[in-house]
Design a binder for these strands. Structure first.
Lengths: 172, 172
DNA sequence: CGATATTTGATATGGTGGATAACAATTATC
DNA sequence: GATAATTGTTATCCACCATATCAAATATCG
């Protein structure tokens, strides 16, 4: 019994009391977002979902997720590294990185090679096919995905946005 | 057999070849992020994780997740709405919203009331306890969470960031 | 009116990402 | 050389997301 009387009244009247003013008012008016519009985390999350969604669309012909793309990028720029190093810099836990690598390796995009110095670790390397796929992915991302963001925000704004996001990601 | 020769060489030498230059070089140099630094989606995701993490910390005494907080906010600003309406505006699928509401209702933060007009739908309402918890949560979020973001970015930058994120979330 | 479609909340279920514990093989430390 | 730490791996759990389906209630339309 902790619901206020006004809430009970609203339950009785519900939305029907809103039919009165005009004739054919569009029923079910848009909800008020209230303080939600000021919550940075909320917009951050929704923007992130949209951006990932667009990424998947743009790079769909190559069947690459954002996470997979980031792995390929890292492998290309950092040859000779092992699973732990790659996973750590991407914020992926080692156990979860195993299945991810299995997927990439089964598609012949990268390869695990036992290190001669430390026979525990697997040195990761892109295959030729991996390099080719990465190159095509980069082009798709630049031409379709990032280009669309640039179009929406403008180049300067996009750079400012990226700088602030990187700031939050690193220093927060 | 698609791994290049340079990759194989690197696997043999691995990181050991880097011990040569200086005496006690910090082994395992930081990896190059490469194009990852320019990928908006990547920074977006990492920033979002950090912000949610901080939100959970700041509002920990009330045991509220960002999603739960957003539901309480919406219920407060939009009395008389049913589950479908609330779930839809938050981007939550109706089936998944059921368990979420169960959690909030079992903690006596909100209540489902059968509508008198449409006996299918549940009108949602905050309880008195729900309003009290929401009020305390708002204070914690403003005083600790958003204040910390303001401190990091500055008020003007924070507003610009929010505007761009909302833009992406809505128009992208 | 009455048959049919639609809506609402709910359940079941599967998929994916993320987190921890534990293990064998290997290497580092003392 | 005994003990500790590291690496990749497996198993397992939990949160979140998505789909199909259902019963009850309502809307639609002949």
């Amino acid at each position: 019994m902790t619901v206020s009387k006004t809430a009970v009244d609203l339950a009785k009247a519900s939305r029907s009391s809103r039919k009165e003013p005009a004739a054919a008012v569009a029923e079910s008016t848009a909800l008020q977002m209230g303080e939600l519009s000021e919550l940075l985390g909320y917009s951050l999350k929704r923007a992130q979902l949209k951006v990932f969604e667009d990424f998947l669309r743009c790079v769909a012909p190559l069947q690459l997720t954002p996470a997979q793309f980031s792995v390929l990028l890292l492998l290309d720029r950092n040859p000779g590294r092992n699973q732990t190093e790659i996973a750590n810099t991407l914020g992926i836990l080692r156990p979860n990185f195993v299945a991810m690598l299995d997927g990439l390796e089964s598609r012949d995009l990268c390869a695990r090679m036992r290190s001669a110095n430390d026979r525990r670790s697997h040195i990761l390397a892109l295959t030729d096919k991996g390099r080719a796929v990465l190159a095509r992915a980069k082009k798709l991302v630049a031409a379709k995905h990032e280009a669309r963001l640039n179009e929406l925000l403008g180049s300067a704004n996009r750079a400012a946005l990226l700088a602030m996001l990187a700031r939050i990601a690193c220093e927060f």
